[in-house]
Each structure stands twice: as structure tokens, then as C-alpha cells.
Design a protein around this nucleic acid. Structure first.
Lengths: 243, 243
DNA sequence: AACGCCGTTTGACCTGAGTCAAGGTGGCCT
DNA sequence: AGGCCACCTTGACTCAGGTCAAACGGCGTT
């Protein structure tokens, strides 16, 4: 069965009392997905939300013609689809599938909502979460509408860079990351190459080392249509000018 | 001063009790913006949120180079920036400016939050709101990443089309709408022209008449890279094939 | 009526990024 | 080992949509 210790790993749930957790645990079920296995599809009625314990879940949109776009990668400790619980006849707005063998806990939304009624504090935690996520989404839109592919990749690298370190792990297959950043795999590869040739980064599989963080930050700052040419044969450590 | 009747026009606030509304009114202030006037900037500390009474407010992101992208147009009865109230040191993630002379009410976030503590119901209303907005944002991202400019315009038209009617008003300057849809004004104009030449719509200033809704729906469905050629001189009412 | 101001339209051109089609490269299985 | 398969890379080409610049049109002002 579901352990309340496991539930506590969820940021969203960690604020609940022992008693509440027990109650949640009663209406929760553990599940396990194989690599690539689909959890739910866009449009399915949403009766539960999920907490990831191990692995990674890919949330993505499907267009009618079948192209897909990764909206988010959910990692252990995070919950997803819990926002739907407050809509009347909720349906999942995305598809969810495991990126690798994954363990998660499914929590009954209806019951959870009714439990929330006794706990304004938890409501506030949730409100804070949603708020944060909303902010992130705005950033995402900004990213898509205002920045080039190169800039988006640079931003991602900087965001993922652990403070103080110069090296980071992409944490997923490059193709998946590409879709997360709304870029085709081919383009992602070319961007990576460009950054390498500029002397900004170094890549070893999924290990990326930032060689020139200032330059990378400059690239990340760039909006649309800012040229970023690789000058023919200059020594070119920092081809981008300070504005 | 602020009338509680006015407060009631806000979907978010309409669920509150008389008593609560009175309290909100005490910490609220009315304000009035001229056309184009800035209400707050991206990055400003967020101490209050707003309810629009009359007019329109444009929420937009600014990139460092100065290009802007409209995230949302807020119309009377809607509140905005209320999600920030649950973050610890919140700052507005967007700029807000009036599109036309606008009246609104500013509500103290701190006080409102503490009032919410006595009203789980209101929390739920808010949660529902945020949830809905989150869903909308996902749709927006989907839109940007998976659809062409033409398809986005078509979607907007269909969305704004009052049920049963064949005509709608764009409701804002075309340039503003263009930015809302992440398209340059020039491109918007061309898309419009294309749709007219296809015989799908008719335009008279900001009045748009849908002549062939099925065709428009087909166009709206199209994702990226689906060609949509205007055939040279066919009579061409429906150049898009049923899949 | 002539003027200027804005928002929109049009045209010519350019470029970022997608598409299609080959090649690499590395892991995993007999 | 060899071979298969999935992923990533590279190259050549195309195209949607952005850019720049010029013309158009409506409207309020003097």
C-alpha cells in the first residue's frame, strides 16, 4: 500500500497533518509505468492527480496531425494534474507518459478536494503552487514568442546550471529536451554545435560544461531576429557585443 | 469610494459574503487610467491586484531589446495579478497598461489573503480560477508551438464568434490583436487578406463576418507546416481537403 | 481644403528553423 | 565478434513569417 512517508515527498502534500495524510493514503494507489507507457491521454476525464516517486513523466500536447510538444517533464517529488480538481467536469488537457520506468501515486481528486475543505493552510499551499506554475507558464510563452531557438537553449542551460558549478546534465534524451524547448531535434543539434564553435560550451554526451557563462547569458538575453553570426575565422571568444 | 456593488461584478469576488465585501472595500481604491497609461511594470513589487470596471487593460511582456508581446487583454469583470498574492515576495511578471480610458479597483493583496483564511469557499473559487487560467495558458503554448499564424488567427475568430451569429467584432486595434496572437501587424494583415481571398471571411474595419465556418475550422485545426495554398484561379471555396 | 498623425496595407527581400534524406555512433542482443 | 536499432548529427533545400520601407486611408485640427 501507499506509505504516508512517500506522500510526504510531495511538496504539495508535505504541509498536511498526519491525520490528513492517512486519509489521503486510503484513497491513493501506487502504480508503476514502463518506459514509454501512457498514463492518460489529452481529453480523458480527470478523476485523480499524481505524485511522482521515481522516474520521469512527460506531459505533452498532441496536435490533430500527430505532432507533439512536450509541455513539461515531471520529476520525483512533484505532483501534476492537481489543478483540475477544482473544475466541474475536468478533462486532462495534456497526455502523460513515462520517459523511463516510473513509480507514482494516484490520488483521488474528489476526496482530496473535500479534505482540503478542512484545511485553509493546504489551500494556500496549493494556491501558491498554482501561482508559481502560472508564472512559469508566462515565462514559457515569453520564451516561445520573444526568443529564438538558440536563446531558448541557452536559457535552459543557465536555468539548469547548479549554482557555483560549471557543468550540468541535460537529464533527458536530447530529442525530448528539444521538444520541451519547442525545437526540432535537428535544430537542437545545430544550436549545440553553434554554441560549441563559439567556444561557449563543451558537450560530452548529456554532460554540458559552460565555458563562458557571460557569453551564454548574453545569448540567452537575445530576443528574436538578433543576429548571432559565427564570424568566419576570428578567434572569436565573444562575438556578441555588449549593448 | 468603492461600492460593494462594483466589487460584485468581479467573478472572483462575487462569491464573498456581504461582510467580506465590506472589508475588501475598505482596503480597495478606485483608479482611472488614460489611454496608454502604465499601471505597473514587469518586476515591480506586487502589493495589490486589480478588478477592471470599464475599459481594457493590456498585460504584456517586454524583452530586454524592447520588443513586446501581449499576454492577455483584461476586460471588465475580470481580475488580474491576484495569483501573486500567494507568493512570498511577489513581483509582477508582466507590464500592465490601459488600452483605452479605463476604470479599475485596486485591492490590497495582503489584507485580501488574510480574509481568504476565513473562507474556504472563496479559496476554492480562486483555485478554480487559477486552474482555468492554467489550462488556458497550456492552450496558448500549444497554439504557439504547434500552429501557424494563420491557424492562430482562425482560432481566435472562432473563439470570439458569439454562438449562433456569423459576425463578430475584433474588440481591439488590429496591431494589439496581432501581438496577442504573437504575429507582426504586417503578417496579421496578410493572413486576413488570405482568408478573404479564400472566401472564408469578410472584413469591414473591426467587424468580421464568417462566410464559411467549416473551412475556417479546418484552417484552425491545421498545425505547423501544413500547406495552405491559394490556388491560382480556381473558384476555390474550400481548398482544404477533409482528412 | 489642406495638413499631419496613426494605424493598416502592400511589396520586396531575408533569415530562422523545419523537412527530407543520408551518414555516424553507441548500446544491446544473440 | 558482428549486427541491429535507436538516437543523434550533418547537409541541402524550402518556406513561413519577420524586416524595412513606402504608400494608403481615416480622422481630428487649424
Amino acid at each position: 500500500m501507499v506509505e504516508i512517508e512517500e506522500l510526504r515527498t510531495g511538496a504539495l502534500l508535505s504541509g498536511l497533518t498526519e491525520e490528513q495524510l492517512v486519509r489521503v493514503a486510503c484513497h491513493a494507489s501506487r502504480l508503476r509505468l514502463d518506459e514509454g507507457q501512457l498514463l492518460f491521454s489529452q481529453g480523458d476525464p480527470a478523476e485523480r492527480f499524481y505524485l511522482v516517486l521515481k522516474g520521469q513523466v512527460r506531459l505533452f500536447r498532441l496536435s490533430p496531425e500527430g505532432t507533439e510538444k512536450v509541455i513539461e517533464i515531471v520529476t520525483p517529488g512533484q505532483t501534476f494534474a492537481e489543478a483540475l480538481m477544482f473544475l466541474n467536469a475536468p478533462r486532462y488537457p495534456v497526455c502523460a507518459a513515462a520517459l523511463c520506468p516510473t513509480e507514482l501515486i494516484g490520488i483521488d481528486a474528489r476526496d482530496f478536494a473535500s479534505m482540503l475543505r478542512d484545511s485553509v493552510d493546504s489551500c494556500f499551499v496549493l494556491l501558491g503552487n498554482l501561482s508559481r506554475r502560472l508564472r512559469a507558464m508566462i515565462g514559457e510563452i515569453d520564451n516561445l514568442a520573444l526568443h529564438t531557438a538558440t536563446s531558448r537553449v541557452a536559457r535552459y542551460l543557465l536555468m539548469k546550471l547548479p549554482a557555483g558549478r560549471r557543468t550540468l546534465d541535460l537529464g533527458m534524451r536530447k530529442g525530448v529536451l528539444a521538444s520541451r524547448l519547442s525545437v526540432k531535434p535537428e535544430t537542437f543539434s545545430r544550436v549545440e554545435k553553434k554554441l560549441i564553435e563559439l567556444g561557449t560550451i563543451e558537450v560530452q554526451g548529456s554532460q554540458v560544461t559552460i565555458l563562458d557563462q557571460t557569453a551564454l547569458e548574453e545569448i540567452a538575453r537575445l530576443g528574436h531576429s538578433q543576429e548571432l553570426t559565427l564570424m568566419p575565422c576570428a578567434s572569436a571568444a565573444r562575438p556578441i557585443r555588449e549593448q
